[in-house]
């Protein structure tokens, strides 16, 4: 199981690397024309925020490495972790189903896949979720007039 300590160190390290990358990208900002010399350069503020983020992330890493040795976990149980990861996966897959195949196929599979990801076995809940999905589709399509492609 992933401990909060390790999770925080990985996340903060990732943010430091991301800050370096975006800070490097910001170096390439080019302002052309008359506005080029007016005021502060466009890279100033993003780099300031990235610098703040990187310093704070460094302090967070130091805190977890030196001070915080508590054995707390990101997820309460491994089942929680599995449910969280699976529902995340279902959301991303559903987004692509919507983009590629349309809203209705996505709405049809999203509910059941989510419930499967959460380990739900009662058939009644599947029916309720399907009915609610249909209701959302009806409200948006026929009441609000939105073309859900």
């Amino acid at each position: 199981m992933l401990s909060k300590r390790i999770g925080n160190i990985i996340f903060a390290a990732f943010l430091i690397l991301a800050s370096l990358y975006f800070g490097w990208l910001a170096e390439g900002f080019e302002t052309t024309g008359l506005l080029a010399t007016s005021g502060l350069p466009s890279k100033f503020f993003p780099q300031l925020m990235l610098g703040c983020s990187a310093i704070c992330a460094g302090i967070v890493i130091w805190h977890y490495v030196v001070h915080d040795q508590k054995q707390e976990f990101v997820f309460v149980t491994s089942s929680d972790a599995r449910r969280g990861a699976l529902i995340l996966l279902v959301s991303i897959i559903s987004y692509f189903i919507w983009r590629e195949l349309g809203f209705v196929p996505m709405a049809v599979v999203f509910g059941p896949l989510s419930l499967l990801a959460m380990g739900i076995k009662q058939i009644g809940i599947y029916v309720i979720v399907w009915a609610l999905s249909a209701l959302i589709w009806v409200i948006f399509t026929f009441v609000l007039g939105v073309q859900l492609v």
Binding site: S94, W137, V146, L148
Partner: peptide, 18 residues
């Protein structure tokens, strides 16, 4: 909660697209 989760997600997706 199993009913709330997919409903909230779908409502968020559709609402933002709308």
């Amino acid at each position: 909660t199993a009913v709330i989760v997919p409903t909230v997600m779908l409502l968020s997706f559709v609402g933002i697209y709308a």
